[in-house]
Design a protein around this nucleic acid. Sequence first.
DNA 1: CGGGCTGGGTACGGTGTCGTACAAAATGTC
DNA 2: GACATTTTGTACGACACCGTACCCAGCCCG
Lengths: 265, 265
Amino acid sequence: MSKPNAHYAPDIRGNLLLRSLAQSDAWLLIPHLSRLPFGPRESVGRTSCGSVQMIFPETAVFCVRQTLLGDRQPALGLVGHEGVLGWSLLMGVEESFTLATVEMQGGTALSIAAGPLLEACAKSATLRANLLRYADNFLEQMASMLGSNTIDALERRVARWILMLHDRSQGDTLLLTHDEVARALHTRRASVTECFHVLEGEKILRCERARVTICDRERLMVLAGFSYGAAEARYAAEIAPWPRELQPPPLSQGQVRFSPPAWLP
Amino acid sequence: MSKPNAHYAPDIRGNLLLRSLAQSDAWLLIPHLSRLPFGPRESVGRTSCGSVQMIFPETAVFCVRQTLLGDRQPALGLVGHEGVLGWSLLMGVEESFTLATVEMQGGTALSIAAGPLLEACAKSATLRANLLRYADNFLEQMASMLGSNTIDALERRVARWILMLHDRSQGDTLLLTHDEVARALHTRRASVTECFHVLEGEKILRCERARVTICDRERLMVLAGFSYGAAEARYAAEIAPWPRELQPPPLSQGQVRFSPPAWLP
DNA sequence: CGGGCTGGGTACGGTGTCGTACAAAATGTC
DNA sequence: GACATTTTGTACGACACCGTACCCAGCCCG
């Protein structure tokens, strides 16, 4: 049996998924949540934080990868204040095949141990369903990552990744190095630099040292094309409002919204 | 309420996942299962088969893709007699973002409608857990597909895909065209032909018209490298015995099992 | 048996991305 | 202020893969 953490009931409004829960479901978790700080590049796997847990990011943003070879392999997806890490637990798997590392400058997250979490899920089917719905959404995010990595040109993949980071951050400035992006997309740092130059030329981004500012999110979405937006829109439909604008502006006459991939008939 | 299909209780031994269930859990499903034939290239989405359902393949093998653009986009994974289609249902999502199409020559599968399935899952937590554990395993398959598509050379990806098809087939001959492989991996048909020639030269495969025979599975595994095997091994550990051999033969002196990717330190 | 179709072999130029490398700029540290 | 470190700019050759195209071999069908 786990003891509720009676003296400490953290505010859960920093995580959209927690906030979307019914009051009664939320209170099954709240007494067991504790807020933890995460520094840049810190990693969260089965062993790192001591024990098995679920993590609801607040300001921290986590990049999910396979455990196999650290950050030399591509990102599977991002989890920020819209989601949760550790869905494997919900599926009856203790040791996930994933490893998450903190992107950008770090931040806080709410953590709950496996025991109390599973107890809570056993008590409430709706809680279980809500968390699992997010797992499905992450699956879709991964699928769309897979598609993007397989068929899109690098420029498009970079645009997509920046949008994904933007969604999970506050403000329009990301504390981010080219190298970090390169490792997430499994490409050369130099290639990322070149893509950024194109985007800067188009006045879509502005880059300073270890700092990227989004100037024109709408055109960034146009550039990212099909690979961005589907999973996010579904999140908005099924779970909670998406933290950023997903709709491009109204079309002017004759304008084509998403330039369709060249290989469409 | 759904009426059990009393006059027809199909043999479930054709699907490893069903076979791995406890008797009591299996019987929650069996009365509602019906065996359906699936022809080549047939596709199974939310709409195709009338209503929402889960599908336990027997001899049929399904290739899972995003719904977005049909088979012009890469495969997310394969589901054969080791798994089940329609995990989204378990996560409380009616309309999955995926679409599955029959690979190779087609075959049969056992289907159950959403209603009876969810009833059964509500009754048995262990049933739910077993099915969800497979969902997690498919997630891992997808992750490893993502990794492979992103970092591996085409030859390795082809090797991997052939192994995945082999695992889900009977015998060592796959009824398969180069074009089918090309579409799954999102590459040119001609590139697949070239890879097959290399593999034929190495006496690992033999190709005839629309027919590929695996001659040396072990060396095929060596060629596929890291990207193949992790998800399959975990399936074997957590769910049921894997249908094919996953262990390469004992090493001879000084031999290196998996040639590590070139980019390892 | 002959025509049509599907599947496979092969070629050619184009190019996006890679690996590597080195230098310049920005920042942190003593 | 001098030095080390991190981050970014830039270059060059290599090559895997791409798009496209055309022809031929098996196979089905009338």
